[in-house]
């Protein structure tokens, strides 16, 4: 008996038209077609989706959580990117 396992796939589901695909979990399947079929059975038994993406798990590159502080720090210091940074005089509307 071969020790080789079916590869792991990450599953993304679009729940309805107009929304983005969202990661819902993972599963094992021999190939992409089977991964789609299995994802249908495992993740959309109650009409949770109208579209499925599957991606081989080993094809995903993730940011390093230990680098998260340094990676996202620039966003924290630039508060002028948010509209609440600015004073709008009373009487000004539509802004």
């Amino acid at each position: 008996m071969s020790k080789k396992e079916w590869p792991l796939w990450e599953v993304f589901i679009r729940s309805k038209a107009g929304l983005n695909h969202k990661h819902v979990g993972s599963l094992r399947a021999a190939d992409a077609e089977m991964a789609i079929d299995n994802a249908r059975d495992v993740y959309t038994r109650r009409s949770e989706g109208i579209s499925i993406w599957v991606v081989p798990s080993n094809q995903i590159t993730a940011s390093d959580p230990t680098e998260a502080d340094a990676l996202f720090e620039p966003a924290n210091s630039k508060i002028y990117r948010h509209p609440t940074f600015y004073d709008v005089p009373d009487g000004i509307s539509h802004m």
Partner: peptide
């Protein structure tokens, strides 16, 4: 019973995220 199979799969997948080998 089909749901139970699905629940098993969600959970095996969750265990795999910790580095457990499914087989």
């Amino acid at each position: 019973v089909q749901d139970e199979a699905g629940h098993g799969l969600y959970l095996y997948s969750a265990a795999e995220t910790l580095g457990a080998d499914r087989e």
